[in-house]
Amino acid sequence: MSTAYVIVTVAAAAAMLVASGIDVFRAQWVRDNMSAYGLPEWTLYPLAVVKAAGAAGLLAGLAVAPLGLAAAICLVLYFLGAIATILRARAYGDLGYPMPYLVLAAGSLALFVAS
């Protein structure tokens, strides 16, 4: 397990937990975005759970490798879905929001595969 993998994975997990917390506390800008994307507000909590579970999986993957792999794959797919949702809503200005999370999850996945 490389040092780069550990650093990127911990950073990705921390970012996912922050994103999850933003969803749980239902920041107004997040609710506005959800509405613009055509998603009901109640979906914030399930999406927060997915992000928190992904963060837990990334951290658990430092001890049990298959969990980290599964979590990284699922988070990459999650954020690709977020990007697809933004594109579907034609809210192109919002594409920058999920990109850092996608890059962190993809980085964790790529470093896992490389190690």
Score class of each variant (00 low, 15 high):
D32S: 03
S2I: 02
A60V: 10
L87T: 09
Y78M: 12
A105N: 05
G96T: 14
T9V: 09
S20K: 04
N33W: 00
L67N: 12
T9G: 01
L44Q: 05
M34W: 08
T85A: 15
S115P: 14
K51Y: 00
G38T: 06
V24H: 01
V103T: 14
L95Q: 12
D94V: 13
V6Y: 04
Y5V: 02
E41D: 15
R90W: 14
G81V: 05
W42D: 06
G81N: 09
I83G: 13
R31T: 06
V113T: 02
F79P: 10
L59Q: 00
D23K: 09
T85N: 15
I22V: 14
G61M: 12
G21H: 01
Y78K: 11
L111K: 13
A71W: 04
Y97S: 12
V18R: 00
A19S: 15
V49W: 07
A36Q: 07
V18W: 09
F112Y: 10
L80E: 02
V76E: 12
V8L: 11
D94C: 11
R90N: 15
V18I: 08
V30P: 01
S20M: 08
M16P: 08
R88G: 15
A91L: 15
L59A: 02
A52E: 12
L47E: 10
L80C: 07
Y101T: 08
R88K: 14
P98S: 06
A53Q: 05
G57S: 11
A4D: 11
I83L: 15
A89F: 13
V76K: 07
V8H: 04
L59T: 00
Y45D: 05
P66A: 07
A53E: 04
L58T: 03
P40C: 03
R88V: 14
F79A: 07
Y5M: 00
L87M: 14
F25E: 01
S108M: 13
V64L: 13
S108A: 15
T9P: 03
S20V: 01
M34F: 12
Y97H: 13
A14P: 01
A12M: 07
M1D: 08
A14S: 02
V8P: 06
I22D: 09
